[in-house]
Simulated assay, not measured.
Amino acid sequence: MSGFELRELDDGSVELLEFVPKVIATFVDRAHAERYHGILIEFEARGVPHQVEQDGQEKSAINSWAEPTDLEWEQAFQALERGDGLKKIAAALNVNPFKLQGKFGAWMKKRKPPASLEDMEECRLCGTNFRASSGGSDLCARCSRG
């Protein structure tokens, strides 16, 4: 089950490589194993790059995330605002879903208009300016808790 390959180098020399099988996982059922096998074959067909670790072992770069442009981020945020799924958008952008979620939160916060002084009321106990809620209380959040 091993294979061999010749690889030419830039200086004209040729390397002889041997590929020896290595067990990377053990599964309890065949269906689960076939699913992962299909995923690995798909990544191999796409040409997902491999990185070589210090001990000479190859490490798949499956989790190498892309860095979208500002326009792509903006489109993703607008899609999230419309209600599209976070995981689906993250997969389409090839970014970590947690990174997308954090950037989306920051984007939403920046879009929120600053409170004008006309919208603010003064707390009758502590004198702090606060944005009044629909409840109509004349106390800020801290003072209304007691």
Rank of each mutant, 00 (worst) to 15 (best):
A61R: 14
I62H: 10
V48T: 14
V48P: 00
V52L: 14
D55W: 03
I62D: 14
G47Y: 08
I62L: 12
A79D: 12
Q51G: 09
E72I: 03
D70H: 04
G47T: 10
A66F: 09
S60Y: 13
Q75F: 07
G47N: 14
E74F: 00
A66E: 14
P68E: 05
W65P: 01
Q57W: 07
N63Q: 12
D55H: 03
Q54M: 04
F77P: 01
Q51S: 09
Q57D: 13
W73K: 00
G56F: 01
E67C: 02
S60M: 12
G56K: 01
P49D: 13
Q51L: 05
G56L: 06
V52I: 15
L71T: 14
W73V: 14
E67M: 05
V52W: 02
P68H: 06
E67Q: 04
E72G: 11
A79Y: 03
R82W: 05
R82T: 10
E81N: 07
Q57A: 12
W73L: 11
P68T: 12
E53R: 09
G47S: 13
Q54W: 06
V48A: 11
E74I: 00
A61E: 15
D55N: 12
G56P: 02
A76T: 06
E74W: 01
F77M: 11
R82D: 13
D55I: 01
F77E: 03
A76R: 01
F77N: 04
A79V: 05
R82P: 05
W65D: 07
D70K: 04
D70S: 11
Q75R: 13
F77V: 00
K59S: 04
V52G: 09
E72Y: 09
G56D: 06
E58Y: 02
S64D: 14
I62Y: 14
S64W: 12
P49I: 12
E53G: 06
Q51N: 07
A79Q: 13
N63E: 07
E53L: 10
L80W: 01
E81M: 08
R82Y: 05
Q51I: 05
G56M: 03
T69A: 09
L71M: 13
V52N: 06
A79I: 05
A61I: 13
S60V: 05
H50L: 04
R82C: 09
G56R: 00
E58A: 08
R82I: 08
Q78T: 10
D55L: 03
D70A: 10
Q75P: 07
E67L: 08
